[in-house]
Nucleic acid binder design. Sequence first.
DNA 1: TCCTTATTTAGCTAATTTGTTAAATTAATA
DNA 2: TATTAATTTAACAAATTAGCTAAATAAGGA
Lengths: 125, 125
Amino acid sequence: MLNMEQKIKIFKALGNETRFKIFKNMFSGGYACHIDESKSKDDLIAQATCVTTIADNFNFSLPTISRHLKELRDANIIKMTKKSNKIYIEPNPQIINELSKCFTDLVDNYDESLYQFDNSKKEEK
Amino acid sequence: MLNMEQKIKIFKALGNETRFKIFKNMFSGGYACHIDESKSKDDLIAQATCVTTIADNFNFSLPTISRHLKELRDANIIKMTKKSNKIYIEPNPQIINELSKCFTDLVDNYDESLYQFDNSKKEEK
DNA sequence: TCCTTATTTAGCTAATTTGTTAAATTAATA
DNA sequence: TATTAATTTAACAAATTAGCTAAATAAGGA
């Protein structure tokens, strides 16, 4: 389960246009490429991409993108794995699933709290 | 459907501790109170709370909380309704449901894109 | 070993955010 | 009508964020 601090970190990370785009592209396969042909195609690392590849998609300097990636990593949204002199980046779907669950829980609890005041609404569920 | 700009606005809004707490309390009923006894109990406005009540829960000045609430409203996370000289505040569960759906969609799409590389994983679903 | 590639760190500036208090606005109430 | 209550706006300061370039680090290849 995510604690409040972790959730806020995730929101902060995704509340910036550049980081949000990286995140989105990451998950929708925008950067995905099979870099290491010697590796099996189900090897996530081989499919993932590196800092420079991501930076090429933006008009910002490499160090700037590097720092954005660090923030996404600190928020646990992406995983970064060093392999030789490159860093391979993968999304972390688990954390997004958890976050999604937090939201639905919150709304479900809210719906329930409304029923305390109004029993007629129970039928709508 | 939420566009990118709207999503980023929501993340930015929730990426601040004070605003996150307001949001959380809002949904978990922390501030909920039946203010207007003359109104039906299923009247959301009557159950909602006002700016000063929320500010009482924080060690920040009223204008500061007022501005935080404005940001939550601009992100469509809460609704603010003026009634006489008070502003009644309710959460907007719809937007949170939508956001939650965006996340699950993203993860689902990501999972699918993985299956393109590895058919053996399809059974796990 | 020297050069190249990939990435991060350091040091800096500009922009944005977050807080403050004081003043303005709006509506209810005495 | 004068006062009080609820809220926002304005003007400002401090902290944080987001960008840059230059330098440092780490690994691979000639």
